[in-house]
Every structure is written in structure tokens, then in C-alpha cells.
Design a protein around this nucleic acid. Structure first.
Lengths: 341, 341
DNA sequence: AGTCATCACTAGAACGTTCTAGGAACGAGC
DNA sequence: GCTCGTTCCTAGAACGTTCTAGTGATGACT
């Protein structure tokens, strides 16, 4: 047997290999690898060197199998949603320092939410964080009966008991947008909505009540939309064809808003000179210099901190002030809003 | 309401629980769960019912621990790259039917490639598929010494032996774009490049040689760029300020191209009337009706099929025709190119 | 001197699977 | 009757960790 490191494919070194090489027991190697106390400095050094030499890496699965805690948070996300990417970035940033690993499972064409959560469960995640889940409330409740579940962005009133909800105050966000526009002098403010997307109903409602509060109930104009650029573009085309054009548009999200912007630019309607546009999310998109979109920012660090925090709290048995965690949005004024022309 | 059995958090049922309930051995339950032969029809039925009743789910990790093969492919991707999302979608579609699971690991701010691959290794992936890896070739070679590694989109000549490469013929794609523009009658064709991004050098070269072949070597104009919308926008602004404007622009990718489009629209330069624009990737972006971008399409199904296929082939010991797998691009003509005005 | 802690370490049993050997029951062939 | 095959099933050993319960030393405090 060559005592050499060079580990060819197929056989990865184990604790026992390290132990043999360092002349100690596997238990001690385990102690050293976990950086637990119970090993002398000299031995520790020797074990680490041995591990290094043969290229040992702990086997995460065996590790999880043994310890009854897995410290694994399963996250379900949509591959085609940039906003989910932003959230994921935040989730990693919170979870890893707290000592939790993240297991990702994507929802894609041909891979539904059921499949996504099934693999997370099989991987022994201790809790699930679902980004904008669309599954029926009953399914979520079923999951929640098995382990802590946090729904991000999707509101669930009483319909799925046991599911934690972390979301932005969507109605409040819509209100801020309307207030801003009204303060600038707009009165004809239209809303291209998000259809059945999570949060859409609240934004619609927020828009309506804000308009009423300003005495503009008769100017309310809601156009059916969705969460893609095309939905926004279609809404904008409809507005341009209408008999009276609004002076401002509140889109469901940033993607939709860029669709609106694009349509307006093509139609030679200046923004914000002719029409002001507001998005929602403050995603990467909105921040790009050449889009420079006024938008309602979702507080991603706060959302992810709450989502991960609640999952962990439930796991560690803390009593939760259960009910939703609602995060305040914050209007980010950039270049697509101004006084009506 | 749901027939959910009493399985409080923390205790998930195991093979032994099912076995006890069905009155058989754990080995037999294992046989039934794997759908292997060696169990009678009646017993099989009974076991399945028992499993169903107590809500048993196999533990993926224990399973992997025991079986020598893990059938797990690790995929590293960039959270902020829509093109990677598209690739992932394709990877799922190929891998799961072939009996392989996918483990995802994201590269994000504060979570580098090293960290990403480390967790994949700890998870006992059998092979790695890296989407547009930026790590030094030496690091890739080091990984390749441990397990099969496939680099998608990043070219590696001899620098990382053992790493499989699957990529698009970037030079050929650039050539197709130039040919198309020349056929339309353009002569002043600029290229906003991708800087140090994977594939950028090849696209730049393809552009240069294509121009030369058409006798347009003196019209070659390469502007420094990158892979984001802002890079494209900056390039476009530079072009507009130049003493002579080109009649067509080839952008490094679709994101860059949308930046170009946006800048041109704002400057009231009609597209394609004033300037034609071509992107690269044929991502979701390009297909959107309101962008409708002429672009060089990367063959995502083929790329993913090759990437997954090569990884699996290496795992199953097939001899590979080693060297790169180069996939032909295909020009997708949409609405942003036309005869020069 | 005798008890008691503490420290460095180890043996061996988990964890939830799959895999390797079988064993019991039952026919069939000689 | 005795072997031989099947078919259905089980016991028990892996897999690579961590955890529990120790064992000897060493030294400190009565």
C-alpha cells in the first residue's frame, strides 16, 4: 500500500485513514475535525497534518446521519425570478454565519414545487424556506405538520396553520408610491397589477385605498398584468391606446416596469416628462444606471434575516410571537418620476 | 383534516418503524421501497400501505452513505446570471431522467467558488459541473484530480488537464453575426466586447477575422465592455460620442445588448433604422416581445445534454473522445437588425 | 496518603440505510 | 428418499461519522 496522498477517483479518505496515519483513534480525529475540545495541542497539530496530507474531507452525509441535528435549511426558489436570486444571496449571508447550511431546490419547467420540496425533505432539511410558493395552502399545511415552514412573500391568512409568513407590507408600498406621485402633482395614476402573483392583491388594494384617501377614487384604473416584462409592456400598450392617458403608472414589479418603460420609449413618450413610472422590488434591474427606476424597495436583508431567523427560532424551540412578520417597504426615488409635464 | 399521522417534529419514521408496523424485516422494507425484486405481491402491498400510513420517507443521506454510488451531480452556478438559470433548467431536464440527482451550490457575493465547490464535495457529489467558472486553472485541475469535472462555457486549453469542456463555438457565433450584418449591407460594424468574461476572447477574435474576411479590417472597432447591461450602455454611449457612428453593433451578450438598446432609444436613434444591434445567448431576455432582439443563440439543450452526458460517461467508465465539445451557435434573426438606413 | 477533578484519549454503540449471506418452505427431478 | 432450484424472507454486517461512557494519567486539595 502506498502511504501516499494521491487519492484516485472513487475512494475518498475517511476518518479511519487519518487516524491510522496519525496513530490515534477515529474518535479523536473527529474531535479535531470538529474543533471540539478534548485534544492536546500537539496531537491536534499532528492530526491536522495527517488529514491535510491525505486530502481528507469530512463526509457531510455521514455527519448528518449520525448527529440528530442536521443544521440544514431547505430553500425552494424559482429559477426564473431575479428577485429570488437576490433573496438567496441574503439567505446565504444570514444562514451560514449562524451555523446553518443551505440546500437549494429549484422550481423550473418540468420540476414543480412538489418535486422541489420532496427532495428537500429527503435530504433531511430541518426546516423549509419557500420563496413565493404557489402551492395550495393545504399542501403547505401538510408540510408544516412535519417541520417548520416559512413562506416568504406569499401571504396565508388562516389557511395554512403552522406556516410562518415573512412578507413586505405590499399595501403600504403601493400607498407610498401613490403618495409620492400625488405629492408631485399627479392625479391620473394607473396601476398595472400582478394578476394572481403573490402580493398582487395587496398591492392592488393598497393602490385603491391610497387613491381614495386622496379623493381620487374616480381616477382609479387597474389594468390586468403579471410579473414579467411582457405583462408590463402589454399594460402600457393598453394605456397608450386608451382615450385618456394617465400621467403616472405604478407597475406590479420592476420587471413589469421595465416592460412599461420600453413601450413608452418606443412610442416616444418621454419618461418622466410625459409619464412617470414606478416599479416594485428594487431589484438589480432597477438600480442599473440606464434604467434608473423609481421603485418601492423591499428590504431584502430584513426579509431574509426574518425568514432564516424564524426558521432557526422554531428549530431551537423558542416561543414565537406567531403570525406574520411584515416588513416595511421603502420608496426609492430615482429618475422615472417627476411632476406631470 | 389531512390524514397526517402523528409524527411530531424531530422524529421522522424510519425503515424500522415501517417494518414493525408491517410485521416484516427492515431489509424487506428496503427492497419494497427501492422497488427491487425479492418481495411477494401481497407483502409488498402491505409494506407500502404501512409506509403510507406513518408517512415514511427514505432518508437520502443514509441511503447515499450506504450505497457506494451516490448518483449526485454537483452544479456550481452564479446567482446573478440569467443564462445560468436557463442552463440549470436544461440540466435538471437531462439529469433526472437519467437517474441522477442535482445538488446546487451558488456563487454569490461573499460566497466564492471555493466555498461553492467545497460544499459540493462534502455532499459527496460524484462529479462537478461548473457553469462559467472563473477559478484559476490550477484549482480546476486540482478538482479534476479528485473527480470528473465539466466546465461549461469556460474554455481551458491545456491548462487544466482532466477537465472536460463543453462550450459554444463563440468565434463562429460572432462570425455568423458579422456575416448577417454584411449581407444586409453594413460595413461599419462595431463590437462591444465582454472583457475577461468566459468566451469573450473568442467572440472578439471571431469578429475580427470575419471582418477581415469581408475586407473590412480597417473598419474593425472593439470597445471594452463586460457582461452586464451597464457595460453595454457604456459602450453605446462611447459609440454615440465617436466622430463616426457605426451602422451596426455586436454586443457581447443579451444583457449588454439591452443596455445598448436602451441607450440608443434614449438618444432617439432608431433601431434597427439607425443602428442595428445583435446580442448573444438568446436568453429569455432576447425573446421578450418588446425587446425582440436579433441574437446568436446558444444551443442550451445541446450544451446541457453534453455537459451532463460527459459527466455521466466519465462516471460510468466509458472512454471519452476527450477534448472539448464545441456546440454550434445559430443566429436568431428578430427585429433589431435591418439594412442600414 | 487519600480523595477528587481535570485532561487526553479510546472502545464501541449508535444513525438509517443497503448489501451479503444465508434459511425455510415448497416443488420437481432422479 | 435425496438433491436441486425457486421464491420469499431475515440476520447481521457494512457505510463514515458522532456520541456515550469510560480509562489512565497527572496534579491539587484535604
Amino acid at each position: 500500500m502506498p502511504p501516499t496522498p494521491a487519492v484516485p477517483h472513487g475512494k475518498r479518505p475517511t476518518l479511519a485513514d487519518v487516524a491510522a496515519r496519525a496513530g490515534v483513534s477515529t474518535a479523536l480525529v473527529s474531535i479535531v475535525m470538529r474543533d471540539a475540545k478534548g485534544a492536546g495541542a500537539a496531537t491536534r497539530e499532528r492530526v491536522l497534518r495527517a488529514a491535510q496530507e491525505i486530502g481528507y474531507r469530512p463526509d457531510a452525509r455521514a455527519r448528518l446521519l449520525r448527529s440528530h441535528r442536521s443544521h440544514l435549511l431547505g430553500v425552494q426558489f424559482g429559477l426564473q425570478h431575479p428577485f429570488h436570486s437576490d433573496l438567496l444571496e441574503g439567505i446565504y449571508a444570514v444562514a451560514e454565519p449562524a451555523g446553518y447550511q443551505i440546500a437549494l431546490s429549484a422550481v423550473a419547467a418540468g420540476r414543480g414545487e412538489q418535486r422541489a420540496t420532496d427532495t428537500l425533505l429527503a435530504d433531511r432539511c430541518e426546516a423549509l424556506i419557500l420563496l413565493g410558493p404557489q402551492a395550495p395552502a393545504a399542501r403547505l399545511a401538510e408540510l408544516a405538520a412535519q417541520l417548520p415552514v416559512v413562506s416568504v412573500a406569499r401571504r396565508l391568512r388562516g389557511s395554512a396553520p403552522g406556516v410562518e409568513v415573512v412578507r413586505t407590507a405590499d399595501d403600504e408600498g403601493a400607498r407610498q408610491a401613490v403618495d409620492h406621485l400625488v405629492a408631485l402633482g399627479h392625479r391620473d395614476i394607473a396601476h398595472i397589477d400582478g394578476g394572481r402573483a403573490p402580493g398582487a392583491a395587496d398591492r392592488r388594494r393598497g393602490y385603491r385605498t391610497a387613491m381614495s384617501r386622496h379623493g381620487l377614487a374616480d381616477r382609479v384604473r387597474v389594468l390586468p398584468g403579471g410579473l414579467t416584462e411582457e405583462d408590463g409592456a402589454a399594460g402600457a400598450r393598453a394605456l397608450l391606446e386608451a382615450t385618456s392617458r394617465p400621467t403616472a403608472v405604478l407597475a406590479f414589479n420592476d420587471r413589469s416596469a421595465t416592460g412599461v418603460l420600453d413601450t413608452l420609449l418606443r412610442a416616444r413618450v418621454p419618461v418622466p416628462g410625459g409619464i412617470s413610472v414606478i416599479g416594485f422590488d428594487d431589484s438589480h434591474l432597477a438600480r442599473l444606471a440606464h434604467i434608473n427606476l423609481t421603485t418601492v424597495g423591499q428590504d431584502i436583508p430584513r426579509l431574509t434575516e426574518l425568514a432564516v431567523g424564524r426558521a432557526i427560532a422554531r428549530l431551537e424551540g423558542e416561543k414565537m410571537p406567531d403570525g406574520e412578520a411584515v416588513v416595511a417597504p421603502r420608496l426609492v426615488v430615482r429618475g422615472t418620476t417627476a411632476e406631470p409635464g
